[in-house]
């Protein structure tokens, strides 16, 4: 069973305005699909539909051939979604934040793996500080550490490069590449220009529809 997320004739209307119509797309193992478009073109809405959060749309979303509605549990067990807000509790330490996310996935987890994940994202030494004392970029890194911590084949990332410094951007970009090389799939929106690669495809959202390139 390999990963395959498809959308067929997707259309979304918000308060009498069509964000997009007749959108067909597919994410397979080993691919990065970058969704592009100006502000307000529906990038986040599209990501929310494709991650099963928004169900008020026309058209179908299929996970490995089955409608998302029916395959929801299986889909969510294979999805890692990082939204606009990092989802990091400022009153908790990075370690405690990660522990909750691990438990939310139904895994007991252990501290050494959490520590290792934080270290990989340059947070060694910060693991026991309340996240309120971390910078915005560091808080974002705590959220990104989940990419390491909970291996899920499908990543859906909404502006993951926000607030990250230059080295962090390069490392994250490499991580996306590595994930696809191992057979994972990535759906990402970003204003940051991703390095061209054979694995990268683009989807441009604009006025009332989308075009998939190469």
């Amino acid at each position: 069973m390999s990963l395959r997320l498809q959308a067929r004739r997707l259309a979304c209307e918000r308060d009498d305005r069509w964000l997009f119509r007749d959108l067909d797309l597919e994410i397979r193992a080993g691919e990065i699909l970058r969704v592009e478009g100006p502000n307000g073109s529906g990038k986040t809405t599209l990501l929310k539909i494709l991650s099963g959060q928004l169900m008020d749309h026309e058209g179908e979303v299929l996970w490995n051939g089955a409608p998302l509605r029916r395959a929801r549990r299986d889909f969510l067990a294979n999805l890692l979604y990082l939204g606009h807000a990092p989802g990091v509790k400022t009153a908790l330490t990075p370690l405690e934040n990660l522990a909750w996310y691990q438990a939310l996935a139904g895994e007991r987890g252990d501290e050494p793996t959490r520590l290792a994940a934080l270290e990989r994202f340059g947070l060694a030494g910060f693991e026991d500080l309340p996240a309120a004392q971390l910078s915005a970029g560091q808080q974002r890194r705590v959220a990104l550490a989940r990419l390491e911590l909970t291996p899920r084949p499908l990543w859906v990332l909404d502006e993951p490069f926000t607030a990250i410094d230059r080295d962090g951007v390069i490392a994250l970009e490499a991580r996306l590449e590595a994930h696809t090389e191992r057979g994972g799939g990535v759906l990402v929106t970003t204003h940051h220009e991703l390095r061209a690669s054979t694995r990268l495809r683009r989807l441009a959202l604009g006025e009332g529809g989308g075009d998939v390139e190469g």
């Binding site: 959060q53 979604y81 990091v88 939310l104």
Partner: peptide, 9 residues
Amino acid sequence: DGSLEQLLL
């Protein structure tokens, strides 16, 4: 802070 979104997912 976005953790409710994660709870839903």
